[in-house]
Design a binder for these strands. Structure first.
Length: 453
RNA sequence: GGCGACGUGGCGGAAUGGCUUACGCAGCGGCCUGCAAAGCCGUUUAUCCGAGUUCGAUUCUCGGCGUCGCCUCCA
């Protein structure tokens, strides 16, 4: 059973399943108005690892992750660039899923779009108004946070305390709000802006409503887990929960939040700070597995520094795992080591302790290499199968790098012949040539082995 | 000001009231090799400061110092 930190109770507790055998998860997806940044990459990788692990343990996972395709930032960009807003959202979504695919992040089981659920949102807002929890003003419809008794549950702060600080912040919205923490469920549109009809006036939904409607509709009341980046805890998740409470419906029963990506100075990387490190750049310049490896070696709730040193270190670790995979390819099929897998599960079940899980994999890899060196092929096969199986649970694939062309193979044969003939000058020249072509040249008992490095 | 998280070796990063103080990267020494590479073995460097509880604390408590996050843009 997976034990997971729950933001609401601030404790690590078992992830209780509403429906035995099936896990229902809602993950807040991106607002599609720009390229994905490193923080997006971290969030999706963390939950991809969670999903894969749950499936690996035999559970069915329904993972709903939305696309916010209507939002002020989208409209702003469309106006700025003078193009249709759908043009921006369509392109950004394409880029998003291409990047996710490169990262090895599986597509969610459901990808609802905010614009597909506007009618449902209008209906929900109508219910909230009817229940006295929401009210219209000159510029939209707002939820009254004071109608939600435990507002602040996820923020771990009372309304009064929240207002006590941050006094310099500009309060968004009309002066007509009953409470400065009240948030927009519906925003009336200005001329030329995208809009949908509603009983209160044409407009568009506020950010926090879509997730409530889509999660409850697709996953049902009292779904198992709601996830997202730590910055969504408040206000976004708090406000989702507030709507659900105001509706009288049971919302997520467990809340999971991943930590931030921080820059070299240890400060949060985000778009608003203007120090965006683009995920696409990372994917372009490094093995796409490197980011996953980096994240696996830290805990999902800790801040992760993404810098040159870190990425290089992950790339090297990955290369060593690939080495193992290639050199042990002579012992491919073995039964897995049950005790080892039990240790692995124990590590993962402890709030997804992936660093400990990776330590087990590295230990296993070393043992497998030793077994191979000792000629114990049966043990090597068992350890190899175990390592591959564990890595699979984390979405980590090894590559043998064995796409070697015939010309290179010919040179490798020449190299072996030169070594036998003790023509070492010739052998060194051939090796240098192959290395220059990007091959890792390894001398094994059975002859020279080439791998893509 | 309020709330929360956290300070472990050269870097990243787990765990733990005492047992040989993970794991990755880097460094050093060795085995192997014609030399390398790959692999294996060994090894160097650490628990922010102070007090308390305890037979014993890096781990628990209190205080201090410091870092980061949230307090209506945000993964």
């Amino acid at each position: 059973m997976l034990n997971l930190y729950d933001t609401a109770t601030q404790t690590v507790k078992p992830l209780a399943l509403r429906d035995p055998g099936t896990v229902s998860i809602y993950l807040c997806g991106p607002t599609v108005y720009g390229p994905p940044h490193l923080g997006h990459g971290r969030a999706t990788l963390v939950y991809d690892i969670l999903r894969r692990y749950l499936e690996w343990t035999g559970l069915r996972v329904r993972l709903v992750s939305n696309i916010t395709d209507i939002d002020d930032k989208i409209i702003d960009r469309a106006n700025r660039e003078g193009r249709p807003w759908q043009d921006i959202t369509n392109k950004c979504e394409d880029v998003w899923f291409r990047a996710m695919s490169q990262l090895g992040v599986q597509r969610p089981t459901d990808v609802p779009h905010a614009t597909e659920y506007v009618d449902e949102m209008v209906a929900m807002i109508g219910t909230l108004v009817a229940r006295g929890a929401a009210y219209p003003t000159d510029d939209g419809v707002y939820l009254s946070v004071e109608s939600v008794p435990d507002y602040g549950l996820l923020a771990h702060q009372s309304l009064d305390d929240m207002l006590a600080g941050g006094g310099e912040r500009e309060v968004l919205g009309a002066e007509q709000k009953r409470h400065s923490a009240d948030f927009a469920l519906w925003k009336f549109s200005k001329p030329g802006e995208p809009s949908w009809p509603s009983p209160w006036g044409d407009g568009r939904p506020g950010w926090h409503s879509e997730c409530v409607v889509m999660s409850l509709q697709l996953l049902g009341d009292g779904f198992d887990l709601h996830c997202g980046g730590a910055d969504l805890r408040f206000p976004h998740h708090e406000n989702e929960r507030a709507q659900s409470v105001a509706l009288g419906r049971e919302f997520a029963r467990h809340w999971m939040h991943n930590g931030f990506v921080v820059d070299a100075e240890g400060e949060k990387m985000s778009k608003s700070l203007g120090n965006v490190a683009n995920l696409l750049d990372l994917l372009e310049h490094y093995d796409p597995r490197a980011y996953r490896m980096l994240l696996l070696q830290s805990h999902y709730r800790s801040p992760v520094k993404v810098g040159q040193d870190n990425i290089d270190s992950s790339v090297k670790a990955l290369a060593n795992l690939d080495n193992f995979y290639a050199r042990t390819s002579s012992c491919p099929n073995g039964a897995e080591d049950g005790a080892l897998l039990a240790d692995f599960r124990a590590a993962m079940n402890n709030d997804l302790d992936t660093p400990a899980a990776m330590a087990l994999i590295f230990d296993t890899v070393r043992s497998a290499n030793s077994a191979l060196d000792d000629g114990d092929l049966a043990r090597c096969a068992t350890l190899r199968a175990s390592a591959v199986h564990m890595a699979d649970a984390l979405g980590l694939n090894f590559t043998a790098g064995d796409d070697v062309d015939d010309v290179a193979l010919g040179k490798a044969a020449e190299l072996d012949a030169a070594r036998v003939a003790k023509d070492f000058a010739r052998a060194d020249a051939l090796r240098a040539e192959l290395t220059a072509q990007g091959y890792v040249v390894e001398t094994a008992k059975e002859g020279t082995r080439l791998r893509r490095g």
